[in-house]
């Protein structure tokens, strides 16, 4: 176990290093300097050169890279170009709250609704609930979440005026973004749980339980649920990854001051330090999630052995 985790952690570091290097190179390929915009042009060449010096951009690329790596090790992600006096870490920290709230609400609601739908669908296999679940599952992965968000904003927010359309003032402002973000985890968990439960219900031990006269409810709760819900952990990784993706478009639509909209903004502002910081943050978060999912799955399901699961397929 320890060997496995340390091996995975080592991979994590290599992956992160590769991402940092690649991001750094891509940032250097970008045409022009970050101070080409109008608000910097008025400063004149002397002040611009001073700015370049201040950010260390006058030095050769390799020493810039080494300095960035060194600072990264000390937990320093540099200073934003767009907010000149604010460290990137500071900007990031101020924007993470809304994203975390929306993301966790979306995942919790999506999982709760999706898993219940999946179980009922499998229990009443080929019944009306089963068909509804399958339709929801197919639509949930087929309708882009920014379309869902746009429609929610238009109907629920504008036409019916039930919930706030945009911005971030109260908890009510987080409802529509969370709902828009919820559909993808809902659909994937509903579909997954349905398949798993169908599989479990056809197992011999369920037949045995039934033939011994166990009540449907007890059989479902005591036997089927436990075994069907365990594998849900495996799809949590991709689910969280999708959430990150979704947050970019949805935070933009609902003007949520989260890290997703920060990423889009810093792309538009050529704010390279923030882009790099966010890329590293997203990647680290993503890799960590996948690692935790893998470890927790082996911990809760004794049938899986780590050495086997780590063979690449």
């Amino acid at each position: 176990m320890t060997a496995y985790v340390s091996r995975r952690l080592a991979y994590m570091m290599v992956t992160l290093f590769a991402i940092v290097t690649l991001t750094f190179c891509l940032m250097k390929i970008l045409p022009g300097t970050p101070f080409d915009e109008e608000r910097f042009m008025s400063l004149g060449p002397a002040r611009q050169a001073a700015l370049m010096r201040q950010y260390g951009l006058d030095q050769p690329v390799h020493s810039q890279f080494l300095r960035y790596l060194g600072n990264l090790f000390r937990g320093d992600l540099g200073t934003s170009y767009f907010y000149p006096d604010r460290p990137v870490l500071d900007v990031l920290r101020s924007r993470i709250g809304p994203s975390a709230l929306i993301g966790s609400q979306a995942i919790l609601m999506g999982l709760a609704v999706g898993m219940s739908m999946g179980i009922v669908a499998a229990w009443r296999h080929n019944g009306s609930m089963d068909y509804i679940t399958m339709v929801v599952a197919v639509l949930g992965v087929s309708v882009p979440n920014f379309v869902v968000a746009a429609l929610l904003q238009y109907y629920v927010g504008l036409r019916w005026g039930i919930l706030p359309v945009a911005f971030w003032k109260s908890w009510a402002h987080s409802v529509l973004p969370s709902v828009a973000l919820m559909f993808s985890p809902l659909a994937s968990s509903a579909r997954f749980v349905r398949t798993e439960t169908l599989d479990v219900l056809s197992q011999d031990y369920i037949q045995t339980a039934r033939s011994k006269g166990m009540s449907e409810r007890r059989m479902l709760v005591r036997h089927a649920l436990r075994n069907a819900l365990l594998p849900v952990v495996t799809i949590l990784g991709p689910m969280i990854a999708n959430l990150l993706t979704g947050s970019l478009a949805i935070e933009k639509i609902f003007s949520v001051p989260g890290i997703g909209s920060l990423f889009v903004e810093s792309i538009q502002n050529n704010d390279y330090p923030v882009i790099m910081g966010l890329t590293i943050f997203f990647s680290a978060f993503y890799i960590l999630c996948i690692l935790l999912v893998d470890i927790s799955y082996t911990l809760i399901d004794p049938r899986i052995r780590l050495s086997k699961g780590s063979e690449g397929d």
Partner: peptide
């Protein structure tokens, strides 16, 4: 080749796609 893949699998592909689009 497999170690290389294991490194690549950890990369959140969308972020990388966005960076390429910018560059």
């Amino acid at each position: 080749m497999q170690r290389t893949i294991e490194v690549l699998v950890g990369v959140p592909s969308l972020i990388l796609v966005i960076l390429f689009m910018m560059a």
